[in-house]
């Protein structure tokens, strides 16, 4: 097991290096020149060149990438040749000349919002989806099963942006469960858990709905399939009670594949977060990167958010694989 984890860690580190370089390479290919963008109206080729040097874009992609990697570990000084030198401590994700801030500071600022949203949604959909799925499987063909089927249909057929608008319309504007002025206010979940819930519950629920529906269906079919396995009959033949059979034998096997999918869905949630953040006025990673791309073309922010997003996916992959190996002994080699 330890050997397996070490090996996977090594692969993940290599993968992250490749991913980060690919990101640098792609943005180098895009025919937009940030040095020209930040140049004022009286732009001269010399000025552009000076800007380029200041932004650190006057060296090869490989060199840019290497400096970035070094910055991650050692911190880095930006704005060489400009009016002032700025130092961003490790881990440095770059410097936004647009906002005059270290990118790491900007990300640290918005990250808790995104994390609250994604983790909240994740916990919500997993608990609702799995418990509803188990319930539906146990009461197969009865009322609870049919009711959960309606939930599945509604949940899977409503796109997140529609759900989001409906939630805002009814819950915020019509029933006033949340003060529209407080919508999107960041509250610290430790010092102000109620306030945090008020801000995040509905965005999380919006984001979770479609996933919860899919997970209900998936859990239901998995539990039913496992229930008819021979080893469940063996468990019964041993004299175990139905409760133990469900909790230990059926769920262990039925939920293992759900762990895999849940991990990957969690990583992919950042994409969905962009929409949800927009609807609820939350300033998270999604909003930040959207703004950086559409409004300011703030390359350091774009690179950093892309990298954080992909690192998220890669690391979740690692966690999923290790978790799966822990759950299913057949995978461990």
């Amino acid at each position: 097991m330890l050997k397996y984890v070490t090996r996977r860690l090594l692969y993940t580190a290599i993968l992250l290096l490749i991913v980060s370089f690919t990101i640098f390479y792609i943005f180098d290919l895009i025919p937009v020149d940030p040095a020209r963008l930040i140049c004022s109206k009286q732009c001269t080729p010399d000025l552009v060149e000076a800007n380029r040097h200041r932004l650190g874009l006057d060296v090869s992609v490989l060199e840019q990438w290497w400096r970035f990697i070094q910055g991650l570990f050692q911190g880095r000084t930006y704005g060489e040749g400009g009016v002032e030198d700025i130092y961003c401590g490790a881990p440095s994700f770059g410097y936004s000349f647009n906002r005059h801030e270290c990118v790491s500071t900007i990300i640290a600022d918005v990250f808790p919002t995104t994390l609250s949203l994604t983790i909240g949604a994740f916990v919500l959909w997993l608990s609702v989806g799995v418990s509803l799925g188990v319930l539906a499987a146990r009461k197969k063909g009865k009322f609870a099963d049919r009711a959960s089927n309606v939930f599945v249909l509604v949940g899977t057929s409503l796109p997140t942006f529609i759900t989001g608008i409906l939630v805002v319309l009814f819950i915020v504007l019509k029933f006033h469960l949340v003060n529209p002025l407080e919508l999107g206010d960041w509250k610290n979940p430790i010092t102000d858990p109620i306030g945090w819930l008020r801000t995040f519950f509905f965005p999380c629920a919006t984001l979770a709905l479609a996933y919860a529906a899919t997970y209900t269906r998936f859990t239901r079919s998995n539990v039913l399939e496992i229930s008819s396995e021979d080893y469940i009959r063996t468990a019964r033949a041993k004299g175990l009670s139905e409760k133990v059979i469900l909790r230990k034998h059926t769920l262990r096997a039925a939920l293992a594949p759900i762990v895999t999918i849940a991990g990957l869905d969690f990583a992919g949630l950042l994409g969905g977060a962009i929409i949800t953040e927009g609807i609820f006025g939350l300033s998270g990673l999604g909003k930040l990167s959207l703004k950086a791309v559409l409004e300011t073309y703030d390359l350091p922010i774009i690179v950093a958010t892309t990298l954080v997003g992909s690192a998220f996916v890669v690391i979740m992959n690692l966690i999923v694989d290790v978790a799966y190996a822990y759950l299913d002994p057949r995978v461990r080699t």
Partner: peptide, 18 residues
């Protein structure tokens, strides 16, 4: 499991893999 026990045809699928 105490007074009466049963064993089955396919010992692979009759044992819990996890």
């Amino acid at each position: 499991g105490k007074v009466m026990s049963m064993i089955f045809q396919d010992p692979m699928s009759a044992l819990h893999p996890y």
